[in-house]
Amino acid sequence: MNRITQAFRRLTETNGKAFIPYIMAGDGGLSCLVERLQLLERLDATAVEVGVPFSDPVADGPTIQQAGIRALKDGTSLNDILVELTKAKANLHIPIILMTYLNPIYSYGINRFVEAAQTAGIDGCIIPDLPIEEEEIIAPQLAEAGIELIRLVTPTTPIKRVEEISNRGNGFLYTVTVKGITGARGEFDGGLSTFLSSVKQVSPIPVVAGFGISNNEQIAEMTKYCDGVVVGSKIVDLLSKNRLEELEDFMSAYKKSSANI
């Protein structure tokens, strides 16, 4: 069984909620990627989203854009990331979800990528510019390799379409919480709880909220209606400033509150 599915099974047994941090590979140098993954594993993250830097990240806000630019300046490529993950494979147990725009993979070669990702022990892929209408380009190969394609739904997705999308996948349904791009937000739309609940109602797979989530109050509120959260810009920001204690506090506070739900 795929490690993502296993992780969610365990959460169900303990009534826990998923916490999935996002990091940008190559931000701070590729040499610290594995270290960071191990840190997040130690801090009990459910899985990690590993971002592949791209020159034109249209779904991302300033924090992740800047992290991507730093990573690219440092010369980080998709191939380097795959090589690094392959080397560290035996020492990493946390599920790894690669988050990449389509072009770096397309340029690498779809089949070659899927093979290399499998070798690197990657469990899932999020491709933000690949709606279901276009996924034939890679979905069959990923399925064959046992890598979950994590699909997204958003507040603009009609509920019938949410249902269709959620029925295609196995890992979890990435539910974008805002009409907009990534980046920490102080407030969310009033209709969010209704939206999350309606997604939860139709989805046969776990529902994970993401985009803009940056503090424990928000997490506590959202996880009332879904199975977990992705935290991106906030984590990227803390890591790039090397504020590791704050990161630990953030994640352990979450763990405590999650255990009490």
Partner: peptide, 12 residues
């Protein structure tokens, strides 16, 4: 061609 856009834009 195609529609390689974030899901948020698919409806639009």
């Amino acid at each position: 061609g195609g529609r390689f856009v974030p899901e948020t834009l698919m409806k639009a």
